[in-house]
Amino acid sequence: MTANKSDVRLSVQQLRKVYGVGSRNEVEAVRSLTFDLHAGEFACLVGPSGSGKTTLLKCIAGLLEPTSGEVVLDGRRVAGPAEGMAVVFQEYSRSLFPWLSVEDNVELPLKTSGVPKAERKERVSEALEAVSLSHATKSYPWQLSGGMQQRVAIARAVASNPSVLLMDEPFAAVDAQTRGELEDLVRDVWKRLNMTILFVTHDIDESVYLAERVLVLSSSPTIIQADLHIDLPDVRSQADTRSLHRFGELRHQVYEEVQFAKINPGGERTAAREELRS
C-alpha cells in the first residue's frame, strides 16, 4: 500500500507546547514538532516516557491548545476538536459510555452529527462487523472483556468515517495475546477502509510491526528525532513477520534511537549523535 504523497491529510507545523506559561513552574513539554501525514498512511510515534506523546496527541486532537505552531487537518486549521478526526484512547473502559449498548455507543457520534437513521444503522453494523463484534451489539461495554471493549472503541472511530484516526497507546492496557489480535485488527481495518492512522505507542516492537513509518520523539522538550521508513512486506502476521531478519534490523534501529532519545532532550545532542555513529 503506497501512500499518495501529494495528498496531505494532517500537517503538524512547528508545534510547541509550554505548560504554565509565565508562572514559576513553566515547563516546555514540546519544543517543536513538524511532520506531515499523507492519505492512507500508517505512522507510529514512539518515544521514551516523558517525551510528550500524550501532549502531542491531545494537541492534534484539538483537546489541548498549542502554545505556538499549528495543526492542519485536510487543509483546515485545528482549533478545537475537529470533525474528521477520531480518537481511540488507552483507557477503553472509561471511553465508552456505560449507559449505552455497544451499538448505541458506535452510533452516537453519527447520531449527533445528523446522519440519517438508515445510513447510521448501516455504518454501525459494518463497523461492528469489521471488528468482529456483530454478535455483541446489544451488550453493554462493562459486560465485555478489555479487548472487546477496545474493539468497540475502534468500531466507533471507524464508523465516524474520519480523515485521520488517532490512537493513543490503545493496547497498552491489554494483555499480550489480545494485543496481538488487536494489532492485526487495526492493520486489517486500515487496509480495508483505506484509513490514515497516527498511532502513538511506547512499544517498539509494536511500532515496527504496525507501521510504514516510525517517528521517534526525543525526550522533553520534544522534537522529532528520527523519521524511519519501515520497508516490511504489506502482509504481516504475528508469527512470521516478527521473526523476519529485516524486522530485527528495523527494531534494532528504532531501539537505538529510543535509547538515544532518552538522553537527548530537545534534540540538542543530534549533532553529537552523528559523531557517535561514525
Binding site: 486532537a61 484539538g62 483537546l63 476538536p81 470533525e83 477520531a86 480518537v87 484512547f89 452516537l108 457520534p109
Partner: peptide, 9 residues
C-alpha cells in the same frame, strides 16, 4: 474528552 472529540456539543 471522548465526547469532545466526537463533537458532542
Amino acid at each position: 474528552n471522548t465526547a469532545r472529540v466526537y463533537g458532542l456539543r
